[in-house]
Amino acid sequence: MQEPLFMQPVFQEKIWGGNRLNTVFGFELPSDKIGEDWAISAHPHGKSVILNGPYQGMTLDQLWAEHQELFGHQSEEVFPLLIKILDAEDDLSVQVHPDDAYGKQHAGELGKTECWYIIDANPGAEIIYGHHAQTKEELTQMIQEGRWDDLLKRVPVKKGDFFFVPSGTIHAIGKGIMILETQQSSDTTYRVYDYDRKDDQGNTRELHIQQSIDVTTVPAVTPQLAVKEVRKGNSAVTTYLETEFFNVYEWQVKGELTIAAKGPYTLMTVIEGYGYLVVGDKEYELKMGTSCILPNEIKEWQIKGDVKIIASDTAK
């Protein structure tokens, strides 16, 4: 029986980061401006290292290349998903991501469709999610004239909200928000606006106006979610998304919950509480921030305790 593959977090310093990945999740952070924990990643900009078992010390991209049996023998060249926990101590830049075709042509990597589970949000917190322009010409003009209040659509958020952010969606996470992000394995971001912020050296960050205009969906489309909840005793499985890129679930466990694999492998990250993952006759501790992959051979497992997990898989 294969073991779950537990991941070493990869921390990314950001101009908008803070220290709540320490105060909330208990991670030891290298600075107090950490914006992102790349919890499960095979991306060159931050590779997860396996913490346990026969593959201990290997990186996830290496495992994908050399041990496809763990993933059900997939055809993709690169591991397709990237899981992050983000701590927005300040507003993120207003940005947009390309689709696969544009990303591969202009950035040499996948496009970036993503989704957000709001782990926590300060009172009054909001995101930018979409825009009001009706044509590319209007979008271009509003950007060039700096009419951000007219252009950008603001949406209040609270703990437990979920948002699907397809490529082409203008978006920004606002200050005071922590999220679990499930996304395609891409680090291509086009900044539309960054509040004229300066870094420690007094420089403003690079903007990508033409690329942003190229890839933005106009008029904006707000995806309709078909959220499904299945209760099992005191526990529940919620399916937030089923897309060509990834499927995303919430496992809210109070007591014990048995789960069967739906995809060729399953990713999971603990965002609340404490418990145990049971595979066969082995138990593994689950605390906040724990991330692992359940490889192909593991077809069923149990979660015990009082714990909330965001999980994902692919249809292939």
Rank of each mutant, 00 (worst) to 15 (best):
Q2H: 12
P4F: 00
Q8G: 01
V10W: 06
V10R: 05
K14G: 01
L21P: 10
P30S: 09
I34D: 00
E36D: 02
D37M: 13
G46K: 06
G57N: 01
M58C: 08
T59C: 05
L60S: 04
Q62L: 03
L63F: 12
E66I: 05
E66W: 03
L70M: 11
S75R: 12
F79H: 00
E89G: 13
D99G: 04
A101M: 10
A101Y: 13
K104D: 11
L110K: 15
G111Y: 11
I119N: 07
D120E: 07
A121L: 12
G124T: 01
I128V: 13
Y129G: 03
H132Y: 13
E137C: 02
G146C: 08
R154Y: 13
D161A: 03
I170P: 06
T182P: 00
T188Q: 10
D196K: 09
D199V: 09
D200A: 14
R205G: 01
I213R: 01
I213Y: 05
V215A: 04
Q224M: 10
L225T: 00
E229P: 04
N234T: 06
A236V: 07
A236C: 08
L241I: 10
T243W: 12
E250W: 04
I259W: 06
G263S: 03
P264Y: 15
M268C: 10
I271K: 04
E272S: 10
Y274T: 06
K282W: 01
G289P: 01
P295H: 12
N296R: 01
N296F: 14
E300N: 08
E300K: 11
W301Y: 15
Q302Y: 06
I310H: 12
T314C: 03
